[in-house]
């Protein structure tokens, strides 16, 4: 088993996340894409931690922090999605044009 396999896998997941981020029209799906990107980062960190830093496993510590923050971010994001759904009755990203881009 080699480090590079895991890194390539993480890079693929990251790029899929970016694709979803840009093309999705549903706000909830955009949030899911962001979770994919964060998971790619976690995979990177745990991979590095196992192959480069096995004594201190700092990467795993970092991953636990990322998981914590990702959960908080998801909660806040979904609260905002709920608030906007209540006012606009839609979660289509293309409809959010009150403010000019």
């Amino acid at each position: 088993m080699q480090l590079e396999y895991f890194l390539l896998l993480a890079a693929a997941l990251f790029c899929i996340g970016i694709y979803g981020l840009i093309t999705s029209r549903n706000a909830v799906r955009v949030l899911m894409s962001i979770e994919l990107m964060l998971n790619a980062v976690n995979l990177n960190l745990v991979g590095f931690s196992n192959y480069l830093d096995p004594e201190n496993i700092r990467g795993q510590v970092f991953t636990v922090f990322v998981i914590t923050v990702a959960a908080a971010e998801a909660a806040v994001g979904l609260a905002i999605v709920l608030a906007i759904y209540r006012n606009r009755n839609t979660i289509d990203m293309e409809q959010f044009n009150l403010l000019k881009w």
Binding site: L31, I80, I84
Partner: peptide, 12 residues
């Protein structure tokens, strides 16, 4: 709605 929209864009 403007505040919601700004928050959603900012968050994403």
């Amino acid at each position: 709605p403007r505040s919601n929209e700004a928050a959603l864009k900012y968050l994403l």
